[in-house]
Amino acid sequence: MKQRWQRLLWLKQDFPDNHTDPDFLREVSELRNVQLNPSSTSSYSRVVGDFLLFYHRALNTGLMYITFTLLYYYRCDPVYITGALTSLAFLASVLFHRATVSLKSPLIIIFSMLVLSPVLKSLSRTTSSDSIWTISCWLTLFYVASVSLQSQSIVSTNLLVANVAVLASRLSSTTDVFCFLLICIELNVLLPYFERSLLDRKLFTTYGTTFLINNAVVYYFVTQFLGWIYTTVFAFSAVTFVFGLPRYFIYWQKHYYKNGPLLSRWDARRPVLD
């Protein structure tokens, strides 16, 4: 029986130089078949919906930076915002849950933040601002990545809190630190939770309103802080992300050919180095 042809150059094999393995031809035809008949894809509107949700989370993260800018650069008094947001959150929890709110957990959070805010205030005084911005940037990136992987996870919450703590350590007064912590937790932990519960109850109008308000706030402040050009850039990239990227995704889903024996077997292999 004749030895099977092997794809190894250093073996002396009893085959002509222009030998073509029959398997190769078969697999090429299979690949061509797959390329001609693309697989079914998800619906465009669903993909847009998913992208929209992710965009919303990212927007919430932007709210955190807006608050920080207000407190750090514009020296706003945070007490009113905090009071308003906290009462809103309380109202919303009473209205939409219609359940007795357990007081223990919020009280623990508030008091521990009160205790720790003086410590946080002096935490990074000797560190330069640039290092803090860098750390915060990386933490935000990790946070967004963790949100994109799993919308609700312990790691993402922790990354967010760490980021908030790092940013809070730049603020100058204890009140600022405490209010900033509280606002950020409300905007980035409670608000997404609230929005998700809206979606679960199929209250799409309310959800749409929140989403629009959210957008309006973010773009208003971006215009105020950075000017029209940045707003345009942000808006354009947001539109591209929400409406353009799903198209590309669907195109990719249609033509992606995974685990084809031709691609895995006849590719140039990676060398194995000792």
Partner: peptide
């Protein structure tokens, strides 16, 4: 382990503070 939100918040705050110290 599944942690409560207050545990997570306090733990992370302490963690950040300790890392800086």
């Amino acid at each position: 382990n599944l942690f409560e939100l207050d545990q997570l918040l306090m733990g992370t705050l302490f963690f950040t503070i300790l890392v800086f110290l």
